[in-house]
C-alpha cells in the first residue's frame, strides 16, 4: 500500500475505525499532542477542531498532518522483509596493513558460527566494521562483502539502516526503567509482531533457561545480574530481532550457559560472528578466522581432533563454574573438587 492509499483510508473511515485497524496510529497522535481528537469523525474533519497554531508548533498544517499520518501508517505496516532473504554472506579479501593481498573468499551461510581470533589491535574490529557497512572494496581494507552472492548498490546499503547486524557485547546494559515483561512487550510492538504474548512468553522462558539464576517477569531489567541481562539479550536477539547477522564480542562466563546461547542463535538461522579468545566458544564454532596485522591470515575449519578436545575443555569449564558456585555459597575449596572433574 502506498501513502496515497492510506490518505484515502484516512479520508473515508472514522478515526475510531482507523485506530482499531492500526493501533499504532495512537502513537502518531500522541507525538503531536492530538490524543483528544473526536474519534467518530475522519482525521481531517477532527483536525478542523484543532487550532492551527497548535499544529504549527510541530511544523505542521492540516494538509501536512494528513500526509504525515498516511506516511506514518505506511511506514509501520509490515512489508516484505529484505532482511529475511539474507541466506549467505561472502567475504572477499582485500589487503592487510602491509598491503599484502588477503587471498580468501569465504562464504558463510545462515546457521553458521564463525569465530574471529587475533591479538588486540590486529584488526578484528575492522573486519566486523566491513561486515556491518557491507564494504564494497571502498573501505581501508579493500574487502568486498557479498550478500547472497551479489554485490550491493550504495542505495541498498543505506536502506539496510543498520538493521543487517545485531550486536552483543559485554559492555552492554539495559538502561530502560521497565520490567522484563514490559520491556519484551515494547520490543515486540516495535517489531510489529502480531502475536505479542506468544513471542514474549518464548523469549522469557528461553532467557531463563540460559541464565544461571532464574528471574521473574516482574524484575526490572536494570536489576538483572550480568548473566541474566546477557541471557535476556540473547533470547531477545534470537526471537525478536530482524537482523540476520549477529556480532558477538566476548561473552563472559558468569551466570550464563554460553554454548547453549550461541547454539540457540544458530538454530534461528542467523549468521554468527564471535570475537572471542574463549577456547570453549572458539571451538564450538564451525570455522575460525585468524587476524594478523590488519588482515585475514588464515581460515581454519574446526577439525575432528579439535572437536574431540572440546569435551575436556568443557569439563575444565564446568570445574571452574563449580568452584565459583562453591565460593559464592561460602564453601571451602579442597583438592577433591578438582579431581572430580578430571575423572
Amino acid at each position: 500500500m502506498t501513502a496515497q492509499d492510506f490518505m484515502t483510508i484516512l479520508d473515508s473511515k472514522s478515526l475510531a475505525e482507523v485506530l482499531r485497524e492500526y493501533p499504532l496510529g495512537r502513537d502518531f497522535l500522541a507525538n503531536f499532542r492530538l490524543n483528544n481528537l473526536a474519534q467518530e469523525l475522519t482525521f481531517s474533519q477532527a483536525l478542523l477542531e484543532v487550532e492551527e497554531e497548535a499544529l504549527a508548533e510541530f511544523g505542521l498544517d492540516r494538509m501536512g498532518a494528513l500526509k504525515d499520518f498516511a506516511e506514518f501508517l505506511k511506514q509501520f505496516t509490515p512489508q516484505e522483509n529484505l532482511l529475511a532473504e539474507v541466506k549467505s554472506i561472502t567475504i572477499i579479501g582485500g589487503w592487510n596493513k602491509a598491503k599484502t593481498p588477503e587471498t580468501i573468499s569465504l562464504t558463510i551461510s545462515a546457521g553458521e558460527i564463525i569465530s574471529i581470533v587475533g591479538p588486540t589491535g590486529s584488526g578484528k574490529s575492522r573486519l566486523l566494521n566491513d561486515i556491518e557497512c557491507l564494504a564494497q572494496g571502498d573501505t581501508l581494507t579493500g574487502r568486498t562483502i557479498l550478500v547472497n552472492g551479489a554485490e550491493l548498490e550504495d542505495i541498498q546499503r543505506f536502506e539496510m539502516e543498520g538493521k543487517l547486524v545485531a550486536q552483543l557485547s559485554q559492555n552492554m546494559n539495559f538502561v530502560m526503567d521497565l520490567t522484563v515483561r514490559e520491556f519484551l512487550e515494547m520490543h515486540a510492538k516495535c517489531r510489529l509482531t502480531p502475536n505479542v504474548n506468544e513471542v514474549v512468553a518464548i523469549c522469557f522462558q528461553c532467557a531463563n533457561q540460559l541464565a544461571g539464576e532464574k528471574f521473574s517477569e516482574n524484575t526490572l531489567v536494570t536489576q538483572l545480574s550480568g548473566g541474566q541481562s546477557r541471557a535476556l539479550m540473547i533470547a531477545d536477539t534470537a526471537f525478536m530481532s530482524d537482523s540476520p547477522i549477529i556480532l558477538i564480542d566476548e561473552i563472559e562466563n558468569a551466570g550464563i550457559n554460553r554454548r547453549k546461547a550461541i547454539a540457540l542463535l544458530a538454530k534461528r538461522e542467523k549468521i554468527i560472528f564471535l570475537s572471542t579468545h574463549d577456547p570453549l566458544l572458539a571451538l564450538s564454532a564451525h570455522k575460525r578466522i585468524i587476524i594478523k596485522n590488519g588482515g585475514i591470515a588464515k581460515v581454519i575449519e574446526i577439525s575432528e581432533a579439535e572437536k574431540e578436545s572440546l569435551g575436556i575443555i568443557e569439563n575444565l569449564d564446568n570445574t571452574m563454574q563449580r568452584l565459583r558456585t562453591a565460593l559464592r555459597s561460602g564453601e571451602v575449596i579442597c583438592m577433591r573438587d578438582l579431581r572430580e572433574s578430571s575423572s
Partner: peptide, 10 residues
C-alpha cells in the same frame, strides 16, 4: 555500544 540491541531497535 553500551545499551542492548533491543533498546537500540526501540
Amino acid at each position: 555500544d553500551i545499551v542492548s540491541q533491543a533498546e537500540r531497535e526501540v
